[in-house]
Structures are given as C-alpha cells and as structure tokens.
Amino acid sequence: MTFSPASFDTRAGALADVAVLLPAYNGQADVERTLASFAEDAPVYALIVDDGSTPPIVAPAVNGMHVEMLRMPKNGGIERALQAGIETLAARGFRYAARIDAGDLAVPQRLAKQRARMETSPALAALGAWTQVVNRAGEPLFMLTPPADPRELRRTRFLRSPLVHPSVMLRIDAVRAVGGYRVAYPAAEDLDLFLRLMERYDCANLPEPGLYYELNEGGISATKRRKQIVSTLRLQMRYFDALNWRDWAGLAKNLLHFVTPYRALQKVKRVLYASR
C-alpha cells in the first residue's frame, strides 16, 4: 500500500506533512531504538531508507508511528540513500523531512517544535537544534550548541558545524531546489547541502536540546574521517571569504583535525564544550 500525507491527515493532524527520514545500513536494534524515542502528541510517519543491509532492515512496529521501508538495490552510501528518501517523500507530498540517524534519540516534541517554527518562518530551509552528545551507554559527554541566528550561522559556518545533521528538519522543496544531496563531497554531504541552502534561504537552530547524538566509533565521522576532512576542505576553499576571519580560523581548525587522532580530538571536544 502506498502511503501519503492525504491518507495520514485525519489521524496525524499538525504532523501530517512531516516525515522522519532515517537512512540505515544494518543495525536493526539501533533503528528500533531510534524510532521508539519519538514522543509527539500526534502520530508520526517515518521512512527508513535501507542502504543494502544484510540481512535487510525490517520495519519495526512502533506505537503511534507509521513506518515504511525504501530499499536501495545495493549499498551506495548515505548520500544516495538520503537523496532517494527526499525524492520519495516529495513524490508523496510531504513538506518537511526530519533527519535522524540510527542510534540517535529524539527529545520529546522535537517534531512539533521544529514544524511550528518553520511554519512561522517561511524563509527557513533547515532548522536544527542543540544536541547532547552521549556514548553508547547513553552517558552525557558534551553539548553541541550551534548559533540560533541565521546570520551568525553564515558567519561561523566553517568555524564550527552550523547544524547537527540528524537534528535537522528540512523543507523538502528547498532541498530539491538547490540540487538535493550530492555525492560530490563524500562524507560531508550535509555541509555541502547546508552551504547551498544558505545561498538562497535561511538556516537556524532551536536554542534548546532536540537530539541525543550517539558518539559511535563505527560511524561516518570516525570510519571516513580523512575523506570527510578532505571534502570539508574542498568546500571551505569553494566558499572561502578572505574578509571573514572566521573562515581563516575554520580552515586552520580543519587542517588541525587532519593531523589529530580521532580519539584525541574527542577528548579535546569534551573539555572545550564542558567548559561552556
């Protein structure tokens, strides 16, 4: 049965045009735990994009949630999985895609709060939230608090991550208007998208926690770290503003990341963010 907002509308109310977008490669238990974390006052629709998992991900039964699967023919990477998800949601008439990754947990009412803000701010194409970083045991490590103001995000886009990708709600038509998720910048597909969105729209963050982000040494930031840094450097050079000192600082920071071991960098982050 093909699902659409029209068939969901009478039950979902204010969240009828919102879809949770979760790409997954293996990790059935993490997928189930992540979807079960959503606590909203209306039913939630979720699309899992199974990127060639072996065995295939099975759509879990989650109370208050309608879960569907989109299966990629083979493992092609998160960039292709996300773009396939965006196109599927657009074809079904959804307006907003709320990103989350397997293993992460949503703060209660995250979807309602983000949608309400985007409805009152039509210039917004992406809206993230502050994020509590935790370890695999769920113990807090540090808090990510990117700027809330769109102008400040543009100024500091390379000095610190402008948005925490799995915390973001995206306006689907805006994402498609700028070309969607691309494979041109491997492992930095989120920054690539955010930078293109910032050229035509606003991006912002809710100044309150919206996500528990699991620091996973098997995740992209760890396993594809060098590729991610190279892609980020390429993006920095493409959008570099020599008159913005923050771009110079961001470039120096990324070069330092290139030579700093991953675990050492996480320890530094814990100290820096804990002091704020």
Rank of each mutant, 00 (worst) to 15 (best):
P186W: 10
D192N: 13
I229C: 02
Q236L: 12
L21A: 10
D51M: 08
A59W: 15
R110S: 11
A102E: 06
L170P: 00
A16Y: 03
V107E: 10
T156F: 07
S121V: 04
F258T: 01
Y25R: 15
P140N: 10
G218A: 09
R176I: 12
P207A: 06
M1R: 14
H165V: 13
S121A: 13
P146W: 04
A16N: 06
V268I: 15
A42P: 03
L105K: 08
F8A: 02
L170N: 01
R71M: 04
R234L: 14
K253I: 09
R71Q: 12
A252G: 13
R155A: 12
L191P: 01
A39M: 02
R33N: 08
D51C: 01
R171F: 01
G103D: 14
A125Y: 03
V175K: 08
R80K: 12
V20Q: 02
R160F: 12
T131F: 06
A106F: 05
F142R: 13
G27D: 15
Y25H: 14
V271E: 08
P5K: 06
A123I: 05
A46L: 02
F142K: 04
L111P: 00
A29F: 04
L255R: 13
M143G: 00
M1T: 14
T156I: 07
G219A: 15
V164E: 09
P207H: 05
V259D: 02
R234G: 14
R276Y: 01
L15P: 03
G64E: 05
V183N: 09
M65V: 14
F142H: 06
E208Q: 05
I78G: 00
I220L: 12
L144A: 07
L255E: 10
E208A: 00
Q266Y: 05
I100F: 08
R154K: 14
A249V: 12
A39I: 11
Y239D: 09
V175L: 02
A249T: 09
G180V: 05
I100M: 05
G64W: 13
P140I: 14
Q114H: 08
V259C: 01
A129R: 00
A116G: 04
G210W: 00
A184K: 10
F158G: 12
A97K: 10
P186D: 09
L233C: 09
L163G: 08
P43S: 05
R11G: 04
L265R: 12
F94Y: 15
W245E: 03
P147A: 15
G138H: 13
P209I: 12
